[in-house]
Design a protein around this nucleic acid. Structure first.
Lengths: 147, 147
DNA sequence: TTGAAAATATTGAATATTCAACAATTGAAG
DNA sequence: CTTCAATTGTTGAATATTCAATATTTTCAA
């Protein structure tokens, strides 16, 4: 009898693939809802992080919203044009720029939040309460163990 | 006492965000290993799907490797140039193109597989056997419930 | 059988992302 | 203090992705 070898396992059994697939699907759904406001998922993340009212540096933001620095810079440029956020030079370290959410940004963020909550509730319904919280727990722990 | 509202929950508690974060991290690690062979993750997926030796149409492939059709077409163009795969017109439906893996592709795929297995083993070590299989199970079930 | 609609893959233009180089500021060693 | 390395953010060119339009073939209803 042939020895089962991991190297022949179909791609659908790889953790990396399952994560990519699940991420793609859930992201697609979220994208669809946020498109009602014409806002990409990344901009919602940015608004959400900034909605604590504090200033966040570009580096900090890039980490938080999972974007590379140059990509973030260009997306922030657009959001500044749309007056959703604004830049302030950090007085304590003039290399840094602190990003703040505007009033208009706050209003938009609220609408986006409820679209996102809609989705989470839809997931809870079709996938179940228990599975969802267990999956979240496992994902957090995977992320932890990768640092 | 204020009612806890989902709309104020930090972004790090959203399933969509946790998936994106975990996916980004695991993908980054895999990318790093595959870069030893100078191959992007998507090309490995393509080779792996084709390595069953059967012909796969572009549409089928695009679904399997999580790429849009035009993106896949252009990536396949490159892989054809590198003689890793080749196109054959489907004799039963001439709208379709059947993709096949070449011998060179097979050889490369084997090397890539062992790099990927390295990673899976690294995850098993740091994250644990039990967590990994439980996470896979939950992800599969989430994907199922989204269709 | 014919003609319209659907399915499949590709193309080119418009967008977006990434990489490498740069500019400005700070930190820290000598 | 001065200088050199590290940090932070942006820019421009190179790449990659996406959207809409196209070409081809098949399907199916009339």
């Amino acid at each position: 009898m042939a020895k089962p070898s991991k190297e022949n396992s179909p791609i659908t059994e790889h953790l990396a693939y399952l994560l990519a697939q699940a991420n793609r699907e859930i992201n697609r759904q979220l994208e669809l809802r946020l498109s009602k406001e014409g806002v990409p998922v990344e901009q919602w993340r940015i608004l959400k992080v900034l909605s604590d009212g504090n200033g966040h540096s570009m580096g900090e933001l890039a980490d938080a919203v999972l974007l590379n620095h140059p990509t973030l810079t260009k997306m922030i440029d657009r959001m500044v044009s749309d007056t959703l956020v604004y830049r302030v030079q950090d007085p304590n370290d003039r290399r840094k720029v602190l990003m703040f959410i505007s009033d208009r940004g706050k209003v938009l963020c609220k609408r986006l939040n409820s679209l996102a909550v809609d989705q989470e509730e839809h997931i809870l319904e079709s996938y179940g309460d228990k599975s969802t919280s267990e999956l979240k727990r496992l994902l957090e722990s995977l992320i932890d163990s990768s640092n």
